[in-house]
């Protein structure tokens, strides 16, 4: 890979980030979801979970953080499908080293957006929610590695999903199974209160482990009592997220190359026709 592609990809990523935080529609979506979730946390701040002595909102805050990292998968996938549909990808293909720069740019803009969105949520949330263990360096180090590993697990899989769907409309259906997974992944309610077969299903996917990892970082040690086996299970977290990361990193280049090979002017024109018909 030549340095030009890396530099161009870098520029691209930061230009897209800047664009995303300087226009009304995007800003609205950056603040809408964190805002809604903060409102939820605030509303439930008094409710305790069972006899654990922990407020539901205290347990939910790190879990939501983990869930948001996992949702980076969805935004990666949406952007790839959308930009293949509208011809952005074909433009990249027509440039020398364009696809490499495109991917570098996309990784930067999606992960940058993700980090910014996490901060938008986490900073005010820490003021609303009591009982977090955020005073020690260890907490933030744990948060750091869970975050990085989580993104490496989520984004390549998102890219794979993004190249599988033919249109942005079909891609929209992806959100349904994801919502289902969120419901059973112990984000808004601890996993131990679910039937065992659902617990096993949830533990296949990254959302649960990202939530668990974040709870291990931000909750006091005594909160571990709520978890499966009363353990933070860091080894298992690294294992499962690691498997997803490796899977994604192996599959993504293969699937992306196949997707890029099939792009041409007439394919983009076909999709444009279809989209215009839908609008008209």
């Amino acid at each position: 890979m030549n340095s030009g592609a890396i530099r161009a990809g870098w520029t691209r990523g930061f230009v897209e980030l800047r664009q995303s935080f300087t226009n009304g529609a995007d800003l609205f979506s950056h603040f809408l979801w964190p805002g809604l979730m903060l409102a939820g946390l605030f509303y439930f701040r008094e409710d305790a979970f069972g006899s654990s002595g922990f407020a539901l909102s205290t347990l939910a805050l790190p879990s939501i953080l983990g869930m948001n990292v996992a949702l980076g998968m969805v935004s990666m996938s949406q952007q790839l499908t959308g930009e293949r549909e509208d011809g952005t990808l074909l433009r990249a293909k027509a440039l020398p080293d364009g696809m490499r720069a495109y991917l570098i740019g996309k990784i930067i803009s999606v992960s940058g957006t993700l980090l910014a969105d996490l901060a938008v949520f986490l900073i005010p949330a820490m003021l609303i929610v009591d009982g977090l263990a955020v005073g020690s360096l260890g907490s933030w180090l744990t948060l750091g590695w869970v975050l990085v590993l989580g993104m490496v697990a989520a984004l390549p899989i998102g890219a794979v999903l993004g190249s599988v769907f033919a249109t942005a409309r079909a891609q929209g259906l992806l959100i349904l199974p994801i919502l289902g997974l969120i419901a059973i992944s112990g984000i808004f309610y601890p996993l131990t209160s679910l039937p065992e077969w659902l617990q096993w299903t949830a533990q296949i996917f990254p959302i649960y482990w990202l939530g668990l990892g974040m709870r291990s970082a931000l909750l006091p040690d005594s909160a571990v009592a709520v978890e499966i086996g009363e353990s933070w299970r860091h080894l298992e977290t690294v294992g499962v997220l690691g498997v997803w990361a490796v899977l994604g990193l192996i599959l993504a280049p293969i699937v992306l190359r196949r997707m890029a090979r099939r792009e041409s002017g007439s394919r983009v024109a076909e999709r444009r026709e279809k989209a215009l018909q839908r609008m008209g």
């Binding site: 509208d86 011809g87 433009r91 027509a94 440039l95 364009g98 983009v268």
Partner: peptide, 15 residues
């Protein structure tokens, strides 16, 4: 080779 070839594509919503 790609650098020596120009392709004029029809823009739609990209960029």
């Amino acid at each position: 080779w790609r650098a020596r070839v120009g392709v004029v594509l029809q823009s739609w919503r990209d960029h």
